[in-house]
């Protein structure tokens, strides 16, 4: 008998007297109606609590805010699908990561920042989801550089996690980000900044 067959037969035997459980009660909140301004306020509060830096701008102000956030970066990487109005293609610090033209791990390690968009955000928990589509890129580019500038379109913000999951394609490689990297491993006190990007700048964009 293979290990699989044996384990499955053990489970079947173990369950011979198990009751048939009822349906899962889903009486928790699955919908919300929060005005845009409140939604933004909630997300900002949560992200700042995680020690992320947050800007809230109108769409036309986005490129200037990106420039401001990246002003101290000696180099930065963007995924190939980023909206071309968001960056200056002539910037010598710019590196583009694209299928067939990927940056190596050591090149990423030498890159000080990364600019991405995002797929969906949960205001209540301050969570931003990246799903690897063309304006967010493969996972490594938003991981290895130490400074992550992340654009969050207001239209992608929901209040509750149950409202966010239907917007996610679960089979894509997903990264849920709630603040810069942190640890509570010493005396269970949270300190920010370990292996992931130590600086997280979020730009929430109204009208996008």
């Amino acid at each position: 008998m293979s290990a699989k067959e044996e384990i499955l037969s053990r489970i079947t035997a173990a369950l011979h007297d198990a009751p048939n459980p009822g349906p899962v009660p889903r009486d928790y909140r699955t919908t919300s109606d929060m005005a845009e301004a409140e939604l933004i306020e909630l997300l900002v509060d949560r992200l700042e609590d995680y020690k992320a830096h947050v800007d809230v701008v109108d769409a036309p102000g986005l490129p200037a805010t990106i420039v401001e956030r990246l002003k101290d970066a000696t180099s930065y990487v963007i995924p190939h699908g980023i909206d071309e109005r968001w960056f200056d293609a002539a910037d010598t610090r710019l590196r583009i990561d694209a299928p067939g033209a990927v940056l190596s791990v050591s090149e990423l390690d030498e890159t000080s920042a990364v600019l991405t968009s995002s797929a969906v955000s949960v205001a209540e928990s301050g969570t931003i989801v990246l799903d690897g589509t063309a304006n967010q890129g493969r996972r490594a580019i938003s991981l290895v550089p130490d400074h992550h500038v992340c654009v969050v379109p207001v239209s992608s913000i929901v209040r509750l996690l149950p409202e966010a999951l239907p917007r996610m394609d679960i089979t894509r490689p997903l990264t849920w980000i709630s603040g810069p990297s942190a640890t509570s491993d010493i005396e269970l006190e949270r300190v920010e900044g370990v292996h992931g990007p130590r600086q997280l700048d979020v730009i929430i964009v109204k009208g996008l």
Partner: peptide, 29 residues
Amino acid sequence: FMQLLPRSSTGERMNPYTSLWTGVTEGDG
């Protein structure tokens, strides 16, 4: 579970990072 777990374990609204993967994704990971 992603509401229950972080709040119960580290007492955070959400843990800093959650990664999800489904088999192999070409060109990523």
